[in-house]
Computed example of a mutant assay.
Amino acid sequence: MLKRLFLPLGLVLAFLLAWLEPAWGQAGRQAGLVPWVVVVIFLVNGYQIRLAELPRDRGFVKALLATAVISLLLGPGSDC
């Protein structure tokens, strides 16, 4: 149960902290922590996925390939 709620509760906590103390977020951005926070979010999300529960039909494989092409080839052109 806790594993399932870890990411949503963490996001709620992050929103509350950002609302109550926005200077912390600004300091984190200036320190270059934003990419690391994104990595942590993806790791936690991956920790929550059970590979046995993923669909294995053709539509899922096509969607996975399309997502990979968009995120790895088409998306990296911006300097955000």
Rank of each mutant, 00 (worst) to 15 (best):
K3M: 08
G10E: 09
G32E: 01
T67F: 14
L9C: 13
F15Y: 05
K62W: 07
L7P: 03
L73I: 15
L17N: 08
Q30W: 11
L7I: 08
A31N: 08
G46R: 07
L9R: 01
S78M: 11
F60M: 05
L73P: 06
I49F: 11
I49C: 00
E21F: 14
A27R: 14
I41G: 03
L11N: 03
A66S: 07
L65Q: 07
L2W: 01
P55L: 09
L54W: 11
G28E: 02
R56D: 15
W24K: 13
K62M: 04
L17V: 13
V44I: 10
G32P: 01
P8K: 04
V39D: 14
W24S: 11
S78W: 11
Q30D: 13
D79N: 03
K3P: 02
G46Q: 00
F60S: 10
V61W: 07
G32W: 02
V61L: 04
D57M: 11
L64V: 03
L65F: 00
L11I: 13
N45G: 01
V37N: 14
F60H: 12
F6Q: 09
Q48H: 02
L33C: 06
A27E: 14
L33W: 15
A18P: 01
P35K: 04
L73W: 15
L43T: 08
I70N: 07
D57Q: 05
R58N: 06
Q48E: 08
A14V: 00
S71E: 13
D79V: 05
L11S: 03
P76C: 08
L73R: 09
I70A: 09
R56P: 00
G59A: 14
G59F: 11
L73C: 15
V40Q: 03
S78K: 15
V12W: 01
L11H: 02
P22I: 03
L17T: 05
M1Y: 13
R56K: 12
I49V: 14
R56E: 04
T67A: 10
L20K: 08
G10A: 09
I49K: 07
G59T: 05
L5Y: 06
D57L: 07
L7A: 04
V40I: 15
S78R: 12
L5D: 09
R58L: 11
F42R: 14
V39A: 06
A18T: 06
I70C: 06
L64A: 13
G77W: 07
A18H: 03
R29A: 12
P22Y: 09
A66F: 07
L20S: 05
Y47W: 10
A18C: 07
V40T: 13
L72I: 01
P76L: 13
F60G: 04
T67V: 03
R58S: 13
W24G: 02
G59E: 10
P22A: 03
K3S: 14
P55C: 06
R4M: 06
Q30F: 04
F42Q: 08
R4A: 14
L51D: 01
V12G: 02
L73D: 06
A52Q: 15
F42D: 12
L20W: 05
D79L: 05
L16I: 06
L51I: 09
V40H: 10
R58Q: 13
L2H: 02
L54S: 12
L17F: 07
L20R: 15
